[in-house]
Design a protein around this nucleic acid. Structure first.
Lengths: 248, 248
DNA sequence: CAGTGGTCTAGACCACCTT
DNA sequence: AGGTGGTCTAGACCACTGC
């Protein structure tokens, strides 16, 4: 990646794509209240001049700001702020758990941890052979003594070597990012509502009357390798998925 | 919009942004099996030459193909096909109902239709005054005699004038697009799991043991006007939300 | 018709992967 | 070192809005 140093006068080296300057400018403007709901923003050329980048780069930044729901663009008219100061945040299923809780309140109980052959389903999703080995993990997330999420996770041992119970007790994603130095790039996921199975009922203290919000997902590294196939089931009290959709 | 005519030799005028040629090329390649899972695609320069567009335009098309989950891009390596022939489709909540059913099998029952003042919540979401008027609509969607979705819809009468029961029986969105000639551009939505209320139970034939998949959404026209605030509740058997998330 | 956003281009250069 | 994708630019031209 090409990087530039902004704020170098402050001796704080911030590495950015230039188009992220645009996104940051808008995010900051919304947070500080400079840009509030419905206001017309500066034009593309003004932004380009102010941030010292080309118009094309501003446009690329606007693409991202728009995809995040910050702004609305009206051809021939201008750019308008769409988000309120109390910014909406996407609850991203990438990390397998909701980020709405402070880390202190959240504990992890490991129900099962083994290395097995993958199920047919898991092998297909992970694009591996049924003779390869995968970690087979079952975890329960507990929020202030209340179990809220049960996770069934499959990861190829070749892709994510060296998993231990200690890692599972903390964050698998931290381990992948900071110990293995791999980058997570994308996920396909599917949200449905399901009834609990026997394990779900046992570990989340549920009955047949209860239900769960299920996310089935395949997660990819930035080299395209699928490294996780997982099924997370959340109790409805703590689940929400928020997003923005834009035409094309 | 700038438009060009492709396939003019066939006397079929297809109006496109050039970058959509790239998206279409990839979609078609996946559908016909020319591009199958894992295959390395032509390079950007090759695509540019083949489709007779600039490299930047190819890149813009790739952005869209990537956001649709068609491809994976690996810097320094190439572009790889990610989607299987039996293409995944996003079940888009924009239309308020799942598009997995043929129109023939789906019927609509209108439970309630009036013009009222908006609730505080609806006024806030629609960015209108509590003294303005809104359509207050309650509909049930019925799939082959089984009620599957109940919808509570609020629309400002100033923005969407002339709604009738006949429109409600068909598609409000068709009416907006083709009769009012307005364009729908984006939506914010929130997916949660809920228990049915009294109306839900009555009209979907549910009990307290049942649950529903709820989408609360605000939908915007391309001029930024919020024109719909709605709560749709789907029975879990027919609900799924599928998507792709990419870093940034 | 002036202003604004959208599309498109050719080309320079950078970052990363592969050999 | 060569190939490939990513970023960035300056500038041309188009489509739309609003005065």
């Amino acid at each position: 990646m090409r990087t530039i140093n902004s704020k170098s006068l402050l001796n704080i080296e911030v590495k950015f794509m230039k188009y992220m300057l645009v996104v940051e400018h808008i995010r900051e403007g919304i947070e500080t209240g400079k840009y509030s709901y419905g206001i017309k923003m500066p034009t593309i050329n003004e932004l380009a001049k102010k941030l010292n980048v080309s118009a094309m780069t501003v446009k690329k930044g606007l693409d991202i700001a728009q995809s995040r729901g910050y702004i609305e663009r009206r051809q021939g008219s201008g750019i308008y702020v769409k988000m309120n100061t109390q910014g909406k945040k996407k609850s991203i299923p990438l990390s397998g758990n909701s980020s709405r809780f402070s880390k202190k309140d959240l504990h992890t109980k490991i129900i099962h941890f083994s290395v097995d052959r993958p199920s047919k389903e898991a092998a297909k999703k992970l694009q591996i052979s049924s003779t390869d080995f995968v970690y087979n993990i079952e975890r329960v997330r507990i929020l202030r003594n209340k179990p809220i999420i049960i996770e069934y996770v499959y990861m190829p041992i070749n892709v994510i070597p060296g998993l231990t119970e200690k890692v599972l007790k903390n964050s698998i994603y931290e381990y992948i990012r900071h110990t293995l130095n791999k980058r997570i790039s994308s996920s396909d996921f599917l949200i449905t509502g399901v009834r609990p199975n026997e394990d779900d009922k046992k570990f989340l203290n549920l009955t047949n009357k209860d239900f769960l919000m299920q996310i089935m997902q395949t997660v990819y590294l930035d080299d395209g390798t699928a490294f996780e196939y997982s099924v997370d089931k959340h109790i409805p009290e703590v689940f929400e998925y928020r997003s923005v959709e834009t035409d094309i």
